[in-house]
Design a protein around this nucleic acid. Structure first.
Length: 885
RNA sequence: GGGAGAUUAGCUCAGUCGGUUUAGAGCACCUGCCUUACAAGCAGGGGGUCAAUGGUUCGAAUCCGUUAUCUCCCACCA
């Protein structure tokens, strides 16, 4: 087969991906092998691929391909997440574009549009993942809102409800007035926001609802909420406010009388020391309200507008109302002053709307038993976090976990299976039929139309927390009548999870809870946290900044293998990645290097009559040892999830050891043929290397593997076993290292002295030089002969040098300035003497000799001996040079 | 405010149990080469008081204290 001079990535990638799919190489079924399982962190169903996905899925694919080659039954389950809020807001926006408002259509109509949208855009991201080379078992593709998985979610709700862990409660929630839903604490982002601190006068009432001339000053950032005030609160120890004890004040503008109360919560030195208590619109105020039995006056509606309760400015949007009420207060003489003020304000992660703390009826799942058990799974080491530092974060959160608000005021999602009887009683069942039956038991003459299902849907995480279970067996264990499932039994628990640290609580922690609860076992054993992909100067990637490259464009420009390698190059676990296109160029360059090296080897003429050159024998022996040694290192890196280290180790083995050294040694002269033994060894090494690279760069490696020799139909590198480390001779590897340094030294001397790399030179070496490697030095350094001698004697002009403790001499009569060499040797000598002094100082320190382990002292003694021998040798070289002046 | 982590070469990062002559890598940089696999390359080279400071120790990039700077998480002061 002809190999093009340049590697054509896109052609090769399409060809092999189609081949892999056609042969169902990604598909897994339970069998006798050990399973290795990963479930994909499901991307939003309508999302498109970004660099974060590339990083995450490349890592997943490396792990799964490695496991496959290690002989495990590898199964990577793909799928998508319905992402309630994100998807619903996209659909709402689309409808808006069509002139349709969500309020004007029914739930059923809306869902019809939403499903249409999902069909149209859903799964694009999964198609994109194929371009990246992801070896997902596509036959197992799941969607969190597909009927079976929705059923799992509903059953889970019923399960926990009947267990008594789900309850309905009125709570202060984070209301998103734009998304018209409550969002969890974790979905609120606090940002410092420039606003004003309004100092308002509240006049003391005379007891009959009329203002006196005395007043107190209250500072607030939210004057539009004064109508919802239930009290004014001061610190009981604040002397400034003793005079107003038991008095009442009037709310400005509406003249409503409210009491002055005392509570420790109020800080004396903040603001004016007086707090307006607005239980309906502030979480702390709510708690104060509960303590003091204050009425709750809710004046803001779902859309963030003032309602009738406000009495004034009814229907105004909250920020508009703020502007207007300030004006009204000013006119009424209630404003003392207005200060600029920067304070943290909560924003919705999804819609970026300012969060409105609001009381509302929500469904909650108790964390009381789930959280401690999930904490123990990690603390006891059953689940490992990589890097380990996230354990601290996790512990802190789990120890303070609050009950999980699982209801969302949306339509896109699993509708809560709670049904309300006209009298307010609630039945929870997984179908209307069952619910109606249950309702009849409570109220015998109820009609079907009187039973109303809860309008809310469940939090998306309430479905994704089941993911590692439900993708295998949507009929959740724990359900009455659940039957054992072969897939679940085989694949669960999964092995590793690769995800971003920002969803450690949303998703990771909750999957652990669900796993423990339903499977009595953790969902995975290792969690590898990636960093966030940022741009070159450390900014988060964002659409508005325009600093987020399109992965598909990069793939078409550089090839998927290059993109994969580029992303992995500087991604140690948990560290953010500063993305730079240069990394991907490096990936492309590596592809080219691999490609060209193969072209070289494949281009050789093999002659069975040619004897194996001595240098090639040494090279093959060395590389075989080096390969085994490196495989061991790589395996160790993988076992510790040090993927970028494993990658770099393989990269250097290929580029430096194989290409720059091994191939250069065995390369026949132009036009000459290569011997059979060397050719076979070279190709064998190449095959091992390509297999090592495959998990990282699947496409080019398949292409080359298929070209190494004729492969049977249906063969693939994907199932070729990972090369195993054999025994290796470390001493020989070190000896070869000496030869390598010798070559570098000779080349360096040539360069310094301006001697052509091809000018033949002789080399003298003393005892300790590994003569076995001499042919290598001769070939790579253009040395005519390596001569072993006890004494360089009167060698004439030349350059002496030392490698470790081996002395070498490169005679350069007539080619070198002896004076310069003398100066150089003198400076070396000086350095060695200072070094020796240092070592001796250490050794003459009795404390050191007494305390340090014998091994360390021995090392110091060897240093001393080596330095002495080097000094001796330098001195003799110096003499020799001086004699030849 | 509470907590966690970090600070090593121009950049991104390794550095395991405190000890192996002068602390490593990749990229970038400098010099010379278009040498029949590869200029997306080859060969050679330069570059770091390991944030500062004090301590423990025979010995500290590594352990402890303090300071500075940065990042993340949690809570948010009306």
């Amino acid at each position: 087969m002809d190999l093009s001079a340049k590697y054509n990535a896109s052609e090769v990638e399409d060809k092999w991906y189609a081949y892999w799919l056609e042969n169902k190489f990604f598909h897994s079924e339970p069998d006798g092998r050990e399973p290795y399982t990963i479930v994909i962190p499901p991307p939003n169903v309508t999302g498109i691929l970004h660099m974060g996905h590339v990083l995450n899925n490349t890592l997943n694919d490396v792990l799964i391909r490695k496991a496959r080659m290690d002989g495990k039954n590898a199964c990577w389950v793909p799928g998508t997440d319905h992402a309630s809020i994100a998807t619903e807001s996209k659909v709402v926006a689309k409808l808006k574009g069509m002139g349709i408002s969500k309020e004007d259509i029914t739930r059923e109509e809306f869902l019809k549009y939403a499903w249409e949208w999902k069909e149209e855009h859903g799964g694009i991201i999964l198609k994109q993942l194929r371009k990246l080379g992801a070896s997902c078992d596509w036959d197992r593709t799941r969607f969190t809102m597909e009927p079976a998985l929705s059923e799992a979610v509903i059953n889970t709700f019923v399960y926990f409800y009947k267990k008594g862990w789900i309850y309905r409660g009125v709570r202060m929630v984070n209301w998103d007035p734009e998304g018209h839903t409550a969002v969890s604490d974790d979905e609120v982002i606090h940002k410092d926001t420039q606003s004003h601190f309004y100092h308002m006068r509240y006049f003391i009432s005379d007891g009959h609802g009329n203002p006196t001339d005395k007043y107190i000053v209250i500072a607030t950032t939210r004057p539009e909420t004064i109508m919802a005030d239930s009290a004014i609160c001061v610190n009981p120890n604040d002397e400034r406010h003793f005079w107003m004890k038991g008095k009442k004040v009037l709310i400005p503008l509406i003249n409503k009388e409210i009491p002055i109360i005392e509570d420790d919560y109020v800080e004396m030195d903040f603001g004016t020391g007086c707090l307006k208590v607005t239980p309906a619109h502030d979480a702390h105020d709510y708690e104060i309200g509960m303590r003091h039995n204050l009425p709750i006056i809710d004046i803001i509606d779902d859309h963030g507008r003032l309602n009738e309760q406000a009495q004034i400015l009814v229907g105004e949007e909250r920020f508009e109302a703020r502007k207007k009420i300030v004006k009204m207060l000013e006119e009424a003489g209630n404003i003392e002053k207005i200060e600029d003020y920067t304070s943290p304000v909560g924003y919705s992660e999804r819609t970026n709307a300012v969060i409105e703390p609001r009381l509302s009826a929500q469904w909650f799942l108790k964390m009381g038993e789930l959280a401690p058990r999930a904490l123990a799974s990690v603390e006891d080491g059953i689940i490992k976090f990589i890097p380990d530092k996230y354990r601290n974060t996790y512990r802190h959160w789990m120890e303070n976990a609050r009950d999980w608000c699982i209801s969302r005021q949306l339509w896109w999602g699993q509708r809560i299976p709670a049904y309300y009887l006209p009298d307010g009683q609630i039945v929870v069942e997984n179908s209307f039929e069952k619910a109606f039956k249950a309702a009849q038991a409570l109220c015998p003459d109820i009609k079907p139309e009187d039973l109303k299902q809860d309008e809310d849907v469940l939090d998306t995480w309430f479905s994704s927390w089941l993911w590692p279970i439900s993708v295998f067996d949507p009929d959740m264990p724990g359900n009455p009548g659940h039957k054992p499932n072969a897939d679940l039994a085989y694949y669960y628990p999964t092995n590793d999870l690769v995800t971003a640290p920002d969803i450690i609580f949303f998703w990771v922690a909750r999957m652990i809870m669900a796993g423990n609860e339903f499977m009595d076992d953790v969902p995975f054993h290792n969690v590898y946290f990636t960093g966030i992909v940022r741009d070159k100067i450390g900014r988060k990637m964002s659409k508005t900044l325009g600093n987020s490259p399109d992965p598909l464009e990069l793939i078409s420009k550089y090839g998927a293998d290059a993109v994969r390698l580029g992303m992995l190059l500087c991604s140690s676990a948990g560290n953010d990645i500063l993305y730079d296109e240069a990394m991907i160029e490096q990936g492309r360059n590596f592809c080219a290097k691999i490609w060209n090296s193969f072209r070289l080897v494949k281009g050789w003429n093999v002659d069975p009559d040619v004897a194996t050159p001595a240098a090639s024998v040494v090279a093959a022996k060395w590389f075989e040892n080096k390969l085994s040694q490196t495989i061991e290192v790589v395996e160790d890196h993988y076992s510790k999830f040090r993927i970028s280290d494993a990658l770099m180790t393989i990269y250097k083995l290929f580029w430096d050891d194989y290409c720059s050294w091994y191939l250069e040694i065995v390369k026949p002269a132009f036009g000459a043929a290569v011997d059979k033994a060397t050719y076979d060894a070279t190709l064998g090494f190449f095959e091992a290397l390509v297999k090592m690279i495959h998990p990282i760069m699947p496409f080019i490696t398949e292409e080359l593997w298929q070209n190494i020799e004729e492969r049977p139909a249906g063969a693939t590198i994907m199932f070729a076993p990972t090369p195993k480390a054999g025994a290796y001779d470390e001493a020989f590897i070190r000896e070869f290292e000496t030869a390598r340094e010798t070559v570098v030294n000779v080349r360096s001397i040539r360069k310094q002295k301006n001697i052509s790399p091809k000018e033949p030179l002789a080399l003298k070496v003393k005892g300790g030089f590994p003569m076995e490697t001499a042919p290598v030095v001769e070939k790579l350094a253009s040395i005519t002969s390596v001569e072993l001698t006890d004494d360089f004697g009167d060698t004439g002009a030349g350059v002496p040098f030392i490698i470790g403790t081996v002395e070498l001499f490169l005679p350069l009569t007539g080619l070198v300035n002896v004076e310069e060499e003398i100066a150089k040797v003198e400076s070396d000598l000086k350095y060695q003497r200072i070094f020796l002094e240092g070592v001796r100082r250490k050794l003459s320190n009795e404390s050191f000799v007494a305390h340090a382990p014998e091994k360390i002292v021995a090392v110091e003694r060897k240093k001393e001996a080596d330095a002495l021998s080097r000094i001796e040798s330098l001195e003799s070289q110096l003499n020799s040079l001086r004699n030849n002046k």
